[in-house]
Design a protein around this nucleic acid. Structure first.
Length: 228
DNA sequence: AACAGAGCCAACCGCGGCGCG
DNA sequence: ACGCGCCGCGGTTGGCTCTGT
């Protein structure tokens, strides 16, 4: 299918007016954001910073909940956001990280500068998961083609071939929105039974894995340290 | 040209964690 | 220790665009 670049800009202009009109003054506005709302939100965040989303929503005079403002900022308005055209390198990295972390989109996004968790999640759901499924089918029938070669490479990595159990002993938390990429590790039970792998038995140093301090902005070599 | 189905993506929803009083 | 509110995350949905018929 042909890519739809710059589409989001169009979207903003399309429906939202009627959506905004439909919503009464008391009700919280939902649906697509208008350019005007974007501008207001950006202005308020420029002044007050991207914290206290509820008050930001109020200060901006937007009839939106803080949650919605936060999402809009993180996924669209935030500076240095890359849109569209996930490169082969990035795709490869997503595949590897997903293999390692499962559906921890925010963590994966934290390793892809300029990419949002939502974007990666969408990309995974619409592109990669299908390819994985295809590959699985092909594997069961035997043989592989070019389109799945890269995925095969990922599958071959030995150090992360961990158990398929849906449990994890370490909960990792990271502020993916921070440009510095500071990370902390906490211990907690995993919510929701993610399908990622149990890395607690591996020789991966989690602290090291999420130590962003000595990396370039877009150096993907680091991942090899953990995955090969 | 019109329609239907698939693909894609922005945004919403629900839940859990955390901090504060 | 407890309750409450806010924040962040992952899953899901709604709706627009594209493509094929």
């Amino acid at each position: 299918m042909a890519p739809k670049k710059q589409e989001s800009v169009k979207r903003v202009v399309m429906k939202p007016l009627e959506a905004a009109m439909k919503n009464s003054k008391r009700e919280v506005n939902k649906g697509a954001w208008t350019a005007e709302e974007d501008q207001k939100l950006a202005e308020v965040i420029a002044i007050h910073g991207a914290k206290k989303w509820k008050s930001i929503a109020t200060k901006a005079g937007l009839n939106r909940c803080g949650k919605s403002c936060r999402l809009r900022w993180l996924n669209y308005l935030r500076p240095n956001i890359k849109r569209g055209n996930i490169s082969d390198q990035e795709e490869d990295l997503i595949l590897r990280l997903h293999k390692l972390l499962g559906n921890r989109w925010s963590l994966i996004a934290g390793r892809l500068p300029g990419r949002t968790d939502n974007e990666i999640k969408n990309y995974w759901n619409s592109h990669l998961s299908k390819r994985i499924n295809q590959k699985e089918k092909q594997r069961s029938t035997g043989g592989a083609d070019d389109s799945t070669r890269r995925i095969s490479i990922v599958d071959q990595k030995p150090s992360t071939q961990l158990s398929d159990q849906n449990k994890v002993h370490g909960e990792m938390k990271q502020d993916s929105s921070s440009e510095e990429g500071t990370a902390t590790i906490t211990n907690a039970s995993n919510k929701g039974g993610d399908d990622h792998e149990d890395y607690s038995n591996s020789d991966i140093d989690i602290d090291d894995f999420f130590d962003f301090s000595n990396e370039g902005p877009f150096n993907l070599e680091w991942v090899n340290k953990f995955l090969y």
